[in-house]
Simulated scan of single mutants.
Amino acid sequence: MSIHAGQFRELRLERLGRTFGGVAALRDVSLSIAQGEFIALLGPSGCGKSTTLNILAGLLAATSGSIFLDERRIDSLRPEQRGFGMVFQNYALFPHMSVAKNIGFGLAMRGIARDEIARRVGETVALVHLQGQEHKLPGQLSGGQQQRVAIARAIIIEPPLVLMDEPLSNLDAKLRLEMRAEIKRIHQTLGATTIYVTHDQEEALSLADRIVVLKDGVVRQVGAPDALYARPDHLDVAAFMGFRNVISGTVSRQDGDLAGLTVAGGKQVSGQARGRLAMSQKAVMAVRPEDMTPSPDGPIRAKIISSEFRGREFVGFAMSEEGAALAFVSDHPLTNGARIQLAADPMRAVVFPEVS
Score class of each variant (00 low, 15 high):
Ala181Glu: 14
Gly65Trp: 03
His332Ala: 15
Val269Cys: 06
Ser50Ile: 04
Gly139Lys: 10
Gln281Asn: 12
Glu80Ile: 13
Val197Thr: 03
Leu11Ile: 05
Met241Lys: 04
Asp236Phe: 11
Ile155Thr: 05
Leu107Arg: 00
Gln188Ala: 13
Pro225Asn: 05
Ala62Phe: 12
Gly275Pro: 00
Val355Ser: 11
Tyr196Thr: 02
Leu60Ile: 07
Ala126Phe: 09
Phe94Asp: 06
Ile74Gly: 03
Gly316Met: 04
Ala113Arg: 11
Asp297Gly: 08
Gly85Trp: 02
Ile195Met: 04
Val329Asn: 13
Arg253Met: 08
Lys215Ser: 12
Ala118Asp: 08
Gly36Ile: 02
His96Asn: 12
Met86Asp: 00
Lys215Ala: 07
Met164Thr: 01
Asn336Glu: 15
Arg153Tyr: 06
Leu42Met: 08
Ile157Ala: 05
Ala92Cys: 07
Ala192Gly: 09
Leu69Ser: 05
Gly144Pro: 08
His4Gly: 10
Val218Leu: 15
Val213Asn: 05
Arg276His: 12
Arg231Pro: 06
Thr124Gln: 10
Asn245Cys: 00
Gly17Thr: 12
Glu134His: 10
Asp200Gly: 09
Glu290Ser: 09
Asp297Phe: 10
Pro225Met: 04
Ala92Arg: 08
Ala100Gly: 03
His234Thr: 14
Ile195His: 04
Ser330Cys: 14
Ile156Tyr: 05
Glu290Gly: 00
Val222Glu: 09
Ser2His: 11
Val99Cys: 08
Ile103Cys: 08
Asp345Gly: 04
Val351Cys: 04
Thr250Asp: 06
Ala5Glu: 10
Arg288Leu: 03
Ala283Val: 03
Ile211Gly: 02
Val251Arg: 01
Thr63Ser: 15
Glu354Asp: 06
Arg148Gln: 07
Val246Asn: 03
Asp226Lys: 09
Leu261Met: 12
Leu277Tyr: 03
Asp297Tyr: 11
Glu202Ile: 11
Ser142Gly: 05
Arg185Cys: 10
Val329Cys: 13
Ala344Pro: 01
Asp70Ala: 15
Val284His: 06
Arg310Asn: 11
Gln81Ser: 09
Ser76Arg: 15
Gly265Cys: 09
Asp200Ile: 05
Asp165Lys: 02
Gly48Ser: 08
Thr51Pro: 05
Ala283Gly: 04
Lys267Arg: 15
Pro299Gln: 01
Ser330Leu: 13
Ile157Trp: 00
